[in-house]
Amino acid sequence: MSYEEKGTWVYLVAVAGAYAVYLAIILGRLQGTPVAEVQYAWVLLWTTVGSVVASTAGRTLVETVRPSDSHRRDVRDKEIYRFGEYASRWFVVGGAAAGFFMALAKVDYFWIANVIYLGFVLWAIGGSVVKLVAYRRGL
């Protein structure tokens, strides 16, 4: 497994894990509390930062345990990266569009922030899955 493929796995696990933590905390706070009063902003920011830190630390850990031949990103890695970003971009577009229309409809900030956040998470997860399939099955 190449350095970039291992990095994609680590990124996928870090993003999915961080979002699972976020959901667990927020769903717990939603029990018996009106949506407008739920404190979510710091949890959202910290889990986002946490996913970046976990991804970086995880990549370092994986490389320590199973070092790669090379850390260079070659032409195939770049093509797979572009393919994954291209295929998953609709999640970001969908999240942004949903947030836009929800703002026009004056929906609570909680839902707007969360639908945009979900768009980013699905973009990251979807893109990673597409890249991993491309690494295994080919472009």
Binding site: M1, S2, Y3, S70, R72, D74, R76, D77
Partner: peptide, 10 residues
């Protein structure tokens, strides 16, 4: 060739 071993395998 200037690529990774995994690319040659692929």
């Amino acid at each position: 060739v200037g690529v990774t071993r995994q690319t040659i395998i692929a």
